[in-house]
């Protein structure tokens, strides 16, 4: 049984979720998430030892497309909704760390 979610975990999850929370929100969410998770623990009444997880409802497999080039949007449309741009690029504040994952 997982231990009850506390404010420290809520802060950590907020960070993982890239959500800046106010102190009031941390408090509010801690209580609400705790209530929801308490309810969710109901699942533990079920023995699922030999049950396969079901991620897809459909028994589908092997859906492919052929390796054919289709027209792209073009630079202007690609950047059309950009909050900030620099010429042909999206613009963001200077990235100083390397947290690329790929």
């Amino acid at each position: 049984m997982a231990k009850k979610i506390d404010q420290a975990q809520v802060r950590k999850v907020a960070k993982l979720s890239r959500l800046e929370l106010t102190e009031a929100e941390v408090e509010e969410f801690t209580g609400q998430l705790r209530a929801i998770l308490d309810y969710v623990e109901k699942m533990n009444e079920l023995d699922t030892t030999n049950v396969e997880p079901l991620a897809h409802c459909l028994p589908l497999s092997n859906v492919f497309r052929q390796d054919r080039v289709k027209e792209s949007l073009g630079t202007e449309k690609t950047l059309g909704n950009a909050p900030q741009r620099d010429g042909e690029f999206f613009k963001v504040p200077k990235i100083l760390d390397d947290s690329s994952g790929a």
Binding site: M1, T48, E52, P53
Partner: peptide, 15 residues
């Protein structure tokens, strides 16, 4: 495992 995986298994039971 406790939440997401468990939920997928429960989903299978519901189906």
């Amino acid at each position: 495992d406790a939440y997401y995986l468990k939920a997928l298994k429960v989903r299978n039971l519901i189906r």
